[in-house]
Design a protein around this nucleic acid. Sequence first.
DNA 1: ATTTCTTTGCAACTCGGTTGCATCCCAAAT
DNA 2: ATTTGGGATGCAACCGAGTTGCAAAGAAAT
Lengths: 137, 137
Amino acid sequence: MEPKIEEKLLLKNIKPTPMRQLVYRMLTQEETALSLSELESKFDKVDKATLYRTLKTFEAHQLIHSIDDGSGSIRYALCDEDCTCRPEQLHLHFVCKICQKTYCLKEKPIPQPDLLDGFTYESANFIVKGVCPSCQK
Amino acid sequence: MEPKIEEKLLLKNIKPTPMRQLVYRMLTQEETALSLSELESKFDKVDKATLYRTLKTFEAHQLIHSIDDGSGSIRYALCDEDCTCRPEQLHLHFVCKICQKTYCLKEKPIPQPDLLDGFTYESANFIVKGVCPSCQK
DNA sequence: ATTTCTTTGCAACTCGGTTGCATCCCAAAT
DNA sequence: ATTTGGGATGCAACCGAGTTGCAAAGAAAT
Ligand SMILES: [Mn+2]
Ligand SMILES: [Mn+2]
Ligand SMILES: [Zn+2]
Ligand SMILES: [Zn+2]
């Protein structure tokens, strides 16, 4: 399994340093999106700036995408293998009001919005808030 | 026209202090949503904390609504007279990539999202990015 | 007039994000 | 094998939006 991570990074033209492999593995273990500080707290000791730059690199190479979920901090989640982050590939994100977790709803594409004359569509961010399955009682 | 502003505030149960009337008038003169610091810079001299608390008061009384447009700062715009900020009344917001302005598209309601089983819908934020009419060449 | 509550102004603070810079690492060139 | 150059890392300092504490000013109630 070790060599796989290295390959995933190489596939997206990211030099697979130990640090990056570590961060990548951490992200694969999450079912919801993580913020910089949440990610930071999952390590015994890690430098925030390095982590920050690692995430920026991952994002620039479309290994992860960032989600502005209105929580005040940006969260990050892995992209699909074949994702190029084009407007048509964008999906919904769901924020649970109870557990505060942010879910990627990758099978729910963002609907093309019906705009007024003169407005052109280039991208969008659709955040849905409610209660997630684990928090339903 | 002066007495009108006072009435608008009273209608929403906000004590119409001079400061609040000033801020309200400023907001009525804007066609796009403003952030705290943008609003601040429209006054010769105003205290940021007072302005902040004024906006919070306005928002709590549903005179204005806040828009998290992904710019890093929250923007504010007047609500419609009869707005109660219920999920069904939410509308799209448009951010122009050129002029960075944020528009309320009040006649474009947010579509009810189709969610996976177990997720409940309570509210949403739908931000569309592109080029606005004034920036089309 | 006195008390009580709200609003305002100023300064200080928090926190997420970002940057400068020295050092480390590693691979290519010599 | 040694040198050298560019990217990666770690640490500290910085930034800006938002927020809070607190005292002064103002308004309303008694
Ligand atoms: Mn996602
Ligand atoms: Mn609006
Ligand atoms: Zn939940
Ligand atoms: Zn524009």
